[in-house]
Amino acid sequence: MTKLPLAAAALATLLAACSTSDETLSGFTDPETVWTLTELDGAAFAERMSLQFPEPGRIAGQAPCNRFSGALTVPYPWFGTSPLAATLMACPDLEAERAVLEALGAMTEAEVSGPVLILRNSDLGREMVFKAEGQT
């Protein structure tokens, strides 16, 4: 008779664990990894731009001028974010920042392969390639 309550408790624990799992890109990357943009639409990206996925369902990063953050809104391998919140500092690279944040907002797919993260929008022919810092 005690086996049934024990099985029910185990099932409840398993279901609770499943309901809190992170199915967004952040659940497939290490929260400590800093991803640095190396290519934008097939061309080398010279300015500094980085991403992190610091906690479940969240994205944060440093664009050429400002820090930004937001929520991830779709499960991996899809990619989408809520409107991103950003600081409002001025700098000489604001045009590059506008371009990179616009590109990030257009991405719809994600692929993580070892030290490489690729965000793309196949319909628009756009792609962002990131490398994990400290890895080759």
Results as ranks from 00 to 15, higher is better:
51 L>R: 05
134 G>Y: 06
124 L>G: 11
40 L>F: 04
30 D>Y: 08
91 C>Q: 02
130 F>G: 09
34 V>K: 03
48 R>P: 04
65 C>R: 05
77 P>A: 10
101 L>G: 10
28 F>N: 11
124 L>T: 11
15 L>K: 08
86 A>D: 03
109 E>G: 09
15 L>C: 12
41 D>G: 02
126 R>G: 11
47 E>P: 03
84 L>S: 06
110 A>W: 00
96 A>G: 02
69 S>K: 10
103 A>G: 14
110 A>M: 02
73 T>F: 04
128 M>H: 11
28 F>V: 10
68 F>Q: 04
111 E>A: 14
52 Q>V: 00
130 F>N: 07
56 P>N: 01
50 S>F: 10
117 L>N: 01
94 L>H: 03
38 T>W: 09
5 P>I: 09
7 A>E: 10
134 G>I: 06
93 D>E: 01
19 S>G: 01
51 L>E: 14
88 L>T: 11
117 L>G: 01
35 W>C: 04
90 A>F: 14
52 Q>M: 01
14 L>Q: 00
61 G>Q: 06
41 D>Q: 03
3 K>A: 12
24 T>S: 15
128 M>F: 14
110 A>T: 01
32 E>R: 14
48 R>I: 12
52 Q>P: 03
33 T>Q: 11
94 L>F: 04
73 T>Y: 03
44 A>W: 05
133 E>D: 12
115 P>R: 06
17 A>M: 11
12 A>G: 05
53 F>V: 00
63 A>M: 07
7 A>P: 08
9 A>I: 14
5 P>T: 09
23 E>V: 08
109 E>C: 08
43 A>S: 10
29 T>Y: 08
38 T>V: 15
120 R>M: 09
75 P>W: 09
47 E>L: 08
66 N>G: 05
97 E>M: 12
59 I>V: 15
97 E>D: 11
66 N>M: 05
71 A>V: 02
11 L>T: 01
104 L>D: 15
22 D>L: 06
24 T>I: 15
31 P>Y: 01
49 M>Q: 13
42 G>C: 09
20 T>L: 12
130 F>E: 07
39 E>Y: 08
90 A>Q: 12
75 P>F: 13
65 C>Q: 04
71 A>Q: 00
33 T>Y: 07
48 R>N: 15
82 S>T: 09
108 T>P: 06
51 L>S: 07
131 K>W: 02
106 A>S: 14
109 E>K: 13
56 P>A: 00
9 A>Q: 07
16 A>Q: 10
81 T>E: 02
18 C>D: 13
37 L>Q: 10
2 T>I: 14
57 G>A: 00
32 E>K: 14
46 A>F: 01
59 I>Y: 05
30 D>F: 06
133 E>I: 03
104 L>F: 13
44 A>S: 11
79 F>W: 03
52 Q>R: 01
65 C>V: 07
6 L>M: 14
103 A>R: 13
113 S>M: 11
84 L>H: 05
15 L>D: 07
77 P>T: 03
14 L>M: 00
103 A>P: 12
44 A>H: 07
33 T>I: 07
95 E>S: 13
1 M>T: 13
61 G>F: 08
